[in-house]
Nucleic acid binder design. Structure first.
Lengths: 152, 152
DNA sequence: GGGTGTGTGTCAGTCTTCTGACACGAGTGA
DNA sequence: TCACTCGTGTCAGAAGACTGACACACACCC
């Protein structure tokens, strides 16, 4: 079919392209995570916990770019599956620090390798300095969007 | 942070940063579109139709990065609201080409200005060549992710 | 002390989007 | 001509995420 060149003509918009890239990345991640019975948010949660043990549900939510309510139900699910543990009582305040179980770590290991392969594929064709420039550009965009709260 | 070579380092991961940037952009767009009673997908649909009148539901879905089922329900809603029209019978095959109504065009005008201001804000602090480099980098990522179907 | 503000965990309902499935039209190649 | 494939429109159910709301804990400042 002739789907090739009939691309959309928002081709000058960096915002649109950013969305396109993010969408392609997400799709690629879903593709490799699905055989492992894992969603992107699920994986993100585990990865965050591996690198920063003891994160709270709300902190995990921010790190995975979902609401804390969504992360809450995900954590309940992961606790039932035995991939994550949380104390029944808060050590301090109301914050319940979450941690990976050995089972969670094993699940993460496979997923992390799969995701890594996707990222490597995505970066194919870009040399070191190009990647560095892209990194700085994206950081700049995030900063600009966050710093300016809204239209005054 | 005791992650092996096969893992992902969130701090330095371009993939994670890409998701972060996309999330920030989406949040900023939602913020300015909400007062107009419009969602991001809603806006995307209108913008696509303005630039390429006669697009089918499936083509719109691809352009807005949602499934054709999602676009289908959105289009039904937009038709009821009188922002979009589609013929009751397909001129050829089963494809129903969609078009903006004057009302849709008016709604888009406001939204488009708002979204443009967000994009301008996002690009603040980047000069012409930096934007160009970022554009090429994102294009490269999209191409790499699409061309390689999956991990063999 | 007491008020205020921020951050958190949690429950409930709603909404959007997705997955799965079906039938139909058009093009392709044997 | 006829299977075969691809893209499409559409319906139905399920899953995921969101908004709204409440109570509680901590930190700050008057």
């Amino acid at each position: 079919m002739s789907q090739g060149e009939s691309g959309i003509h928002l081709e000058t918009s960096l915002g649109y392209l950013l969305k396109e890239a993010s969408s392609a990345l997400r799709a690629a991640m879903e593709e490799v995570l699905r055989p492992l019975g894992m969603t992107v948010t699920h994986y993100s949660c585990l990865e965050l916990l591996a690198q920063r043990p003891g994160l709270s549900s709300s902190e995990l939510a921010r790190g995975a770019f979902v609401t804390r309510q969504s992360m809450h139900v995900l954590l309940q699910h992961l606790e039932r599956e035995g991939q994550v543990t949380r104390p029944t009582e808060a050590p301090v305040g109301k914050v319940l620090p979450a941690r990976l179980t050995p089972r969670g770590r094993r699940a993460l290991a496979k997923a992390s390798a799969a995701v890594r392969s996707v990222e490597v594929r995505m970066l194919a064709g870009m040399d070191e300095s190009e990647q560095e420039n892209a990194f700085r550009a994206l950081q700049s965009m995030v900063r600009s969007l966050r710093d300016d709260p809204a239209t005054p």
